[in-house]
Computed example of a mutant assay.
Amino acid sequence: MSRLVELEANGPRKLDADDVDEQKGDVAICQCGLAETFPFCDGSHRQTRDEAPDQRYVYDEDGTRAVVDRIVSDEESD
């Protein structure tokens, strides 16, 4: 499976004591790219559990998922 993920920022995010979950004592980093609290995990990955390995997906801002044939950039290729 593949997934289109759009990010609005770049560069590092420095973690501090406020980033540690007081109940769990840990910090979970998002790997799906869908978390509203990115780069921290908020459980959004749960909506990807039934993604098929041979499909490409795009998620809207409201979490609506669509299967796409391909992802095309408006950038010119060399």
Rank of each mutant, 00 (worst) to 15 (best):
E51Y: 09
V72I: 15
A35L: 05
R46S: 06
D60N: 15
T64Q: 10
G63D: 10
A28W: 06
P39F: 15
V20A: 04
D42M: 03
R65L: 04
H45N: 09
C30D: 06
G11R: 08
D50T: 13
S44R: 06
R65Q: 11
R46H: 14
Q23C: 03
R13D: 10
Y59N: 04
F38A: 09
M1E: 04
D78P: 11
S73E: 07
D50M: 13
L7N: 03
D18E: 10
R13L: 05
Y59P: 02
E61Y: 10
R56V: 00
Q23H: 15
D18N: 08
L4C: 03
V20C: 11
A17V: 14
V68K: 03
E51K: 01
V68F: 11
A17R: 09
D16K: 07
A28I: 01
D42A: 04
V68D: 13
C41K: 12
C32I: 04
T64I: 15
V68P: 00
D18G: 13
V58C: 03
E6I: 14
D50C: 05
G25C: 03
D21H: 11
S77R: 08
A28Y: 04
V27S: 10
D60K: 15
C41W: 03
E76N: 04
S77D: 02
Y59R: 15
T48C: 05
T48E: 00
V20Y: 04
R49E: 11
G63S: 05
R70D: 06
S77E: 05
L7P: 01
L7Q: 12
M1H: 02
E76Q: 02
A9P: 00
N10L: 05
S77H: 01
E61W: 09
D42G: 10
V27D: 06
T48W: 01
A35P: 00
C32D: 02
V20P: 02
G33S: 05
T48M: 10
D16M: 10
Y57T: 07
V67W: 01
Y59T: 15
R13S: 14
K14D: 08
V72T: 06
T64W: 07
S44Y: 09
S77Y: 01
I71D: 01
H45W: 02
E8G: 14
A35D: 07
L7W: 03
G11Y: 04
G43K: 06
F40Y: 15
R65V: 06
V58N: 00
L7M: 10
R56Q: 00
D60I: 02
S2Y: 04
V27I: 10
E51N: 14
D60L: 08
V58P: 00
K24L: 15
K24W: 14
A35E: 03
E6K: 13
Y57H: 05
H45F: 10
Y57G: 01
S73A: 09
F40N: 11
R49W: 08
A35K: 02
V72G: 01
Q47V: 09
V58I: 09
A17H: 10
E51P: 00
E51D: 08
E61M: 14
D21Q: 08
D19C: 10
D60C: 07
D74Y: 03
A66E: 06
D74W: 03
P53C: 02
S2R: 11
D50G: 12
V67H: 08
V72H: 09
P53G: 14
T48P: 00
D62N: 13
Q31R: 14
A35G: 08
C41F: 15
D19T: 11
D69C: 00
R46W: 06
A66K: 14
R3I: 07
L7C: 08
K14W: 03
